[in-house]
């Protein structure tokens, strides 16, 4: 490995498509060395870490625990910039209502709730679940991760459960879908998004390149 290139580890715990995250990171910074890995040493060595996730949180948490990744994630978050995406964000919370209740990592205080079955917008139009597609994210704070991205930009979401952080000062962005929910959280060197930056076209690639330039402060 070339020492001058920064090393980005995408944590692979066997859940879903990590290649799109890795290829979007590589596209955002062709100089970066992006490695999809399940190896604790690789993740410990990396300059920054991406914690992705798709699918059901019960399976994700089971795999994280089985592979002993809870310790690894806990360690990574004290040391370097971490970007958690979608289920990765949800996994950082205390618990989720999905699958009749799942204990999560408890790194950020708060819970993950179900949107509900019969959602309506303010005009009474039916809203489908999963919340799938492009919604506006209103930025709640100034943050290096939001550089060159307008508040209100649309990002790609696909989820049926949403995060509600207990400590509201950690909310970095919110989104409307039948209710206001937390679309992004920022806590020290962690930035977490419910949306998928790797699928969000130019604004998503901008957020990933912001992450690759972020010192975690």
């Amino acid at each position: 490995m070339n020492q001058s290139r920064q090393h980005v580890a995408v944590i692979d715990y066997g859940m879903g498509n990590l290649h799109s995250v890795a290829s979007a990171l590589a596209h955002a910074d062709p100089q970066a060395f992006v490695e999809v890995s399940a190896d604790a040493d690789v993740i410990a060595r990396a300059d920054r870490v991406v914690f992705p996730g798709v699918g059901a949180i019960r399976d994700c948490m089971a795999e994280i625990r089985r592979l002993g990744f809870d310790q690894m994630v806990r360690q990574a978050i004290v040391e370097k910039p971490v970007l958690a995406i979608c289920i990765g964000m949800q996994a950082l919370m205390d618990s989720s209502d999905e699958n009749d209740g799942v204990e999560c990592l408890g790194i950020l205080p708060g819970k993950v709730h179900f949107f509900g079955d019969d959602l309506r917008d303010e005009l009474g139009h039916r809203l489908k679940v999963p919340h799938m597609g492009w919604s506006c994210v209103e930025q709640a704070v100034d943050h290096p991760m939001w550089q060159k991205i307008d508040s209100g930009s649309r990002f790609y979401f696909v989820h049926s459960y949403y995060v509600e952080a207990l400590e509201r000062e950690r909310v970095a962005g919110v989104c409307e879908y039948s209710r206001t929910f937390d679309a992004a959280l920022a806590s020290e060197n962690i930035f977490a998004t419910q949306f998928h930056p790797e699928k969000s076209h130019t604004v998503g690639l901008q957020l990933l390149s912001n992450f690759l330039a972020w010192d975690g402060k």
Partner: peptide, 8 residues
């Protein structure tokens, strides 16, 4: 602003 209708 709500969810955009998608063109695929």
């Amino acid at each position: 602003m709500g969810l955009a209708k998608r063109i695929i």
